[in-house]
């Protein structure tokens, strides 16, 4: 897997990370090394093997549709850096 600067930039953007020039170079170097190593996976024969998403073989864990009290709004907002009129405040979200 060839890691390019463009790939690093697009992945960083998807992850909402701003990388400065040094961090970009470090990310390029680290990802290249790690992916070189991870590429060993491609040699593994996994034909017919089902992907495993969960460690436990559990199924159908459900709850009844019974309401329970919610939190007080002030507790919901307790850790918010900025709030107004019971709401979280964020920069203007564009359409």
């Amino acid at each position: 897997m060839k890691v390019t600067r463009e790939l690093v930039d697009s992945v960083a953007h998807l992850a909402r990370l701003d990388l400065d020039a040094a961090e970009r170079e470090a990310a390029l170097r680290d990802l290249t090394r790690i992916l070189d190593y991870v590429d060993a996976l491609s040699a593994l024969d996994t034909d017919g093997v089902q992907p495993m998403s969960h460690a436990l073989r559990l199924q159908n864990v459900l709850r009844a549709d019974e309401p329970a009290p919610s939190m007080a709004a002030q507790d919901v907002l307790q850790n918010a850096p900025e709030r107004k009129d019971g709401c979280f405040l964020a920069p203007r979200a564009v359409e």
Partner: peptide, 12 residues
Amino acid sequence: AYYAKAQRARAL
């Protein structure tokens, strides 16, 4: 190539 493959490796 990466995520699904790793999940299969996990099953093995």
